[in-house]
């Protein structure tokens, strides 16, 4: 069984993102970049499936500037077998990414595309579902438990009032919830080994995929959540504030 895992290079999610001075976007120059944590969960799960001999090959793919190679190397240090780098300087939206992935799914014929349910930068939560629709495949979203066998995937999904268990017919697109697993840290020997694993590099422009922008970012602004933070000295004082000042109880 072959598993394809798309991985996105994003501003490290532990860093507070900064808005560019002209409000045109988020500053990414000189900022620590990392693999999207949701994708890290997907890589981990795919590698575990390979270690359990359920998967035979784990292929990772990243789309963006040449630096995305680092993200592929990280995934390969975790245990992925080989990488595909699609180079592009453009900002790509979920629909375009899904179309690029569709191109490589057709070429690589994986049984499962396993990917993060969203990226920690744009939080769109859409690429996996769009890809599944384009391929006419089953989709399993927000998955916190995954079992693969005999052309089927039994998945547990996180939904609003609990969990739902579905059985998907493969091939399928499965998107991961962070709860699926705890991703490993790559060991130094594995990081060294990953440097020798193959990466195929393709220019997006050579693929003939339509990636015209449909959703334009006009401006971005910081959303402040700072409040006054009045420290009260006692429960009595808090009750007084809530009853007489805020009037919420």
């Amino acid at each position: 069984m072959k598993i394809l895992v798309p991985v996105k290079r994003v501003v490290d999610s532990n860093i507070k993102p900064l808005v560019k001075s002209d409000n045109s976007g988020v500053e990414v120059g000189g900022v620590k970049m990392s693999m999207n944590p949701f994708d890290e969960t997907a890589v981990e799960e795919a590698v575990r499936l390979k270690e359990q001999k359920i998967a035979s090959e784990v292929v990772v793919i990243s789309i963006g500037e040449p630096k995305c190679q680092d993200t592929l190397r990280t995934a390969m240090a975790m245990g992925a077998d080989r990488g595909i780098l699609v180079t592009s300087e453009d900002a790509l939206e979920s629909l375009s990414v899904a179309k690029i992935l569709q191109h490589f799914v057709t070429k690589e014929q994986p049984d499962v595309v396993l990917m993060g349910k969203q990226a920690s930068d744009d939080d769109m939560n859409a690429t996996g579902q769009i890809l599944a629709a384009k391929l006419g495949w089953a989709q399993g979203t927000f998955v916190s438990k995954l079992e693969l066998s005999d052309g089927k995937a039994q998945i547990t999904r996180e939904i609003d009032d609990g969990q739902e268990i579905l059985e998907l017919t493969l091939p399928a697109v499965i998107t991961t919830d962070l709860r699926l697993n705890e991703p490993r840290f790559a060991s130094l020997p594995n990081i060294m080994k990953a440097k020798k694993k193959p990466i195929e590099t393709v220019a997006l422009a050579d693929l003939g995929v339509d990636t015209a922008v449909r959703l334009q970012v006009k401006s971005v602004a910081e959303s402040s959540s700072v409040r006054e933070g009045v420290i009260v000295g006692s429960v009595e004082e808090l009750m007084d504030k809530l009853q007489n000042e805020a009037k919420v109880i």
């Binding site: 979920s94 899904a98 859409a126 579902q129 769009i130 599944a132 629709a133 927000f142 449909r214 959703l215």
Partner: peptide, 23 residues
């Protein structure tokens, strides 16, 4: 924008070839 909508709407977007707008 709950679990149901976020599951269904982007799939619909894929069928209609539209970039969905979440949240």
């Amino acid at each position: 924008a709950n679990a149901e909508g976020k599951d269904i709407l982007p799939r619909l977007a894929g069928l209609l070839d539209v970039q969905p707008i979440s949240d």
